[in-house]
Design a protein around this nucleic acid. Structure first.
Length: 567
RNA sequence: GCCCCUGUAGCUCAAGGGAUAGAGCGGCGGACUUCUAAUCCGCAGGCUGGAGGUUCAAGUCCUCCCAGGGGCGCCA
């Protein structure tokens, strides 16, 4: 047990309130959920609670009086050293030093798994992210989605969820046709055949490389192909190679998927003869009365069946040509996620330019018999690339690319992950390539955190050489303010994991990592660990260093950044 | 016109409705006989875009306005 200090504190406050009400000190009004926070100022203790201020109105008492009554009844013991009411009506709690120091042993036992929930959350959740069209290499924007989705999945996993990472491969539809035509044109050009890129085709140089690789494999086999009709085999091979590259690019920043879901496969019947997800979903929509035929096409009506609503736009499912739209695939896809594969919850990570699709997709989930509220869409704002003052435009079509791979090659995988995770998904971010590349690699927050970890490792190495061993017998000697601050920072990680998972906000990891590293570095600066004159203190501090190393390693692991032992 | 996101230090951005709004970079000034100076300490820098409102308490919630980004296809 253990790492759930915050839960124990909450329970203690609930008990105290209940007692105050039972012995008549406070009126019996319904109690709100008890929340505690880490006060920004260490003078206010380890935890602070606003319970009294929230109760004061209903109780018709001054907040400070309510706080005093509750604080007086908080049980002091192994966990809580002191509770006191403060100014407007806060209840500030101080955790017993021994209790905090003993938790260091929990951290050491957990190693780089420190922060993980002790109990499974019992939720099967899928995080679908990146899902970039396989018509070109991943760009920096995709990288943001990759880092965000991967970190979110990692955080949810740490919070006890059963998590699946998925990439949706758009291997059907109009853009694939265009991709095939472009590929064929490039191929034919290399075969010395006159061929023009299709209107709006993919002009990037990577298509030339791709055609070259295919020519190496297939020779002149498709030399006679009709430029408007790329052979399926050629297109498939092109997609395969493109996906291989995407996979490799993602691997560069340590992102791996559990499942790659083909869009095309949604149109195929299953092995057990079940109807294709597409067919099944369309039937459900029709049966539910969500489908209208008009203007020669088939539309999804997301509002109440059959009712005309001004504020709800109909969306085309099947074009008048008979071809299903991307949206139809998406309906089938989410039907498959919820109704076939049975996820409790699905989180789609989308670029903000897909914002307009959220409502209709949720509506479609409900329409096919799922619960649209179980689908969450995490939108991330776009990354703007700059070189100094100059905006870098990004477009696959024009071929002017700043690829994820280029970025990683320039700034390194660790910095890429850290920087792309640093901002909240809601915030647009500027990525200045000049700054990232010209900047001394030593002078960035990633190195700062990694350096703290390396220093921990260095101290442990030196200790081993000197034959000094860590010991838990004299942890009470850890009483320096910097030591206490470091301990507090280490103990915050499990709470942070819970909060980040609940709020779907993995970016807090980067702020925390810097805070933790700073606490360690300040401790390092103020407190000599290995001191032959004070063997007991050395042993205790060595334990603290071990725990700090675990917390740093765990944090870096959650971010997806390496934790070097030497720098 | 409608919808989503944003507006916080010179720049890039943090900050569950809480206490004195914080980091990094940039600027200025200090500190290495040390377990790593890839570090530490100090200084300067803010009416949190504006106006109302809700609340014991607003950067955070609500309304309006201004500014920037994105979206409103039988494209994806």
């Amino acid at each position: 047990m253990s790492s759930d200090t915050r839960e124990l504190v909450r329970a203690a406050l609930s008990d105290a309130l209940l007692r105050a009400q039972q012995d008549g000190a406070l009126p019996s009004v319904p109690a709100p959920e008890v929340r505690v926070q880490r006060p920004p100022n260490a003078e206010h203790g380890d935890y602070a609670c606003n319970l009294a201020m929230r109760l004061a109105g209903a109780m018709r008492l001054p907040p400070l009086d309510v706080a005093t009554a509750i604080a007086a009844r908080v049980e002091r013991g192994d966990l809580i050293a002191d509770a006191e009411a403060a100014r407007p009506g806060f209840i500030n709690l101080r955790i017993r030093g021994d209790w905090k120091r003993d938790r260091l042993l929990d951290a050491i036992a957990a190693g780089d798994g420190w922060g993980r929930a002790s109990q499974p959350a019992g939720e099967r959740v899928q995080v679908e992210f990146v899902s970039a069209n396989p018509t070109g290499p991943l760009q920096v924007g995709n990288g943001r989605g990759a880092v965000l989705g991967d970190a979110l999945a990692t955080v949810l996993d740490a919070a006890g969820c059963e998590v699946q990472r998925e990439y949706y491969v758009n291997d059907a539809g109009g853009q694939i046709g265009l991709f095939g035509q472009t590929l064929l044109a490039r191929y034919l050009q290399q075969q010395g055949v006159e061929a023009e890129l299709p209107e709006g085709g993919y002009g990037g140089a990577y298509m030339i490389d791709l055609a070259g690789r295919i020519a190496e494999e297939a020779g002149a086999r498709w030399r006679e192909a009709d430029a408007g009709q790329p052979p399926q085999e050629l297109v498939d091979r092109g997609l395969e190679l493109m996906l291989e590259q995407i996979r490799a690019d993602l691997l560069l920043i340590g992102v791996r998927f559990d499942h790659w879901q083909s869009e095309r496969a949604l149109f195929d019947a299953g092995d057990d003869d079940a109807a294709a997800p597409y067919e099944a979903a369309m039937s459900l929509l029709r049966e539910g009365g969500y489908v209208v035929e008009k203007e020669g096409a088939t539309w999804f009506r997301s509002g109440d069946a059959g009712e005309e609503q001004d504020d709800v736009k109909d969306n085309v499912l099947i074009r008048s040509s008979g071809e299903p739209t991307y949206f139809a695939s998406d309906v089938a896809y989410h039907y498959d996620k919820f109704l076939r594969r049975g996820f409790d919850r699905v989180i789609d990570v989308w670029g903000a330019d897909h914002q307009g699709h959220v409502a209709r997709t949720k509506a479609s989930v409900s329409a096919v018999g799922g619960d649209g509220d179980q689908l969450e869409v995490l939108l991330y704002q776009l990354v703007h690339l700059r070189r100094g003052q100059e905006r870098v435009r990004m477009s696959k079509r024009t071929g002017e690319l700043v690829t994820l791979r280029e970025l990683v090659e320039e700034v390194g995988a660790d910095a890429t992950r850290f920087f792309l995770l640093q901002r909240s998904a809601d915030a647009q971010m500027d990525f200045d390539l000049d700054a990232a590349t010209s900047q001394d690699p030593r002078q960035n927050p990633v190195s700062y955190v990694q350096y703290a970890h390396a220093r921990c490792a260095g101290i442990l190495r030196a200790a081993a050489e000197q034959g000094v061993e860590a010991g838990a017998e004299h942890l009470a000697l850890l009483e320096h303010p910097r030591e206490d601050a470091l301990i507090t920072a280490i103990l915050t990680l499990p709470e942070l994991v819970v909060d980040m998972a609940a709020r779907r906000e993995p970016h807090h990891l980067t702020t925390y990592a810097q805070e933790l590293a700073q606490q360690f570095t300040q401790f390092y600066d103020a407190c000599r660990v290995l001191d032959a004159d004070e063997p007991q203190r050395s042993a205790a501090r060595l334990t603290l260093v071990e725990a700090a190393k675990c917390a740093l390693a765990a944090t870096l692991r959650l971010i997806g950044v390496s934790a070097p032992d030497e720098m």
